[in-house]
Amino acid sequence: MSDASLITREPEAQFGDYVALLKPRVMSLVVFTALVGLLVAPVPVHPMIGFTAILFIAVGAGASGALNMWWDADIDALMRRTAKRPVPAGRVGAEEAAAIGVALSTISVVMLGLATNFVAAGMLAFTIFFYAVIYTMWLKRWTPQNIVIGGAAGAFPPVIGWAAATGTMPLEAWGMFALIFLWTPPHFWALALFMKSDYEDAGVPMLTVTHGRKSTRAHILAYTAVLAPAAVALGLTSIGGPVYLATALAMNAWFLKGAFAIWRRDEMQAELDRYVTEKAFFRFSLYYLFAHFGALLADAALRVTGAL
């Protein structure tokens, strides 16, 4: 059977290719925000159940990533940033990615339901459907607001984490949803301003291309102006506390200032200093989200220890 090597000409997929299919970098954000959602909920969770819940929320996120790579293989192949992904590079077959996506979606939803409750499992199923079908298959190639819709998919994990702990989804959980949902557009559009990407060749409508860069700058300011009060308001709910309020006030003031500076600039100025304001705003936006969720965790820890 030594001629088998003659038949398998395509590059052999390694285990790492299947891991890459699950978008591990997106998964790390999902794990962090879902964990905060689970820990700030007012009901204590057994560590093993909490671990299982986070694990299968992460697997569900990975499954929707695999479904995204299956559906988007044609446009991924056209863009430099994504051309090396396992499906467009030919290491993993498209149908194989689809099968893995469907199988892991089912496993993650069933296991989350068995480990916690079916409110959380239903929410995870809806999130996978929302990201894979509503975002990837429908809206991504159709509207320049695709980032806003995709941001909603990324904003569900803390709600699922909270539901895993309590079986409910009250205002506080949706406050965390609003924080990520409103944060995603300014975060991503700042990146789109200085990363001249090849979305245009792939036919994906990006705001910078369809409405121009000036309009994108105005959009960043508008979303940041809505984000700031929403972020501070979360501190006034039952999960807020002094650490969160102080963090939110300081960081949102800076974020608004940055968005205002981006709005006031034009492309000429930005080209001259190589997008230094946009790059600083983008870098800050990463710390912004991490600090807000970290502060929620800190206040929850203070409440548990009785300091609040």
Binding site: S2, A4, E12, A13, Q14, F15, G16, Y18
Partner: peptide, 12 residues
């Protein structure tokens, strides 16, 4: 076979 070696990382 060579195939076993190439697929080892997947199998493990």
């Amino acid at each position: 076979h060579d195939l076993h070696r190439r697929r080892r990382s997947r199998n493990v």
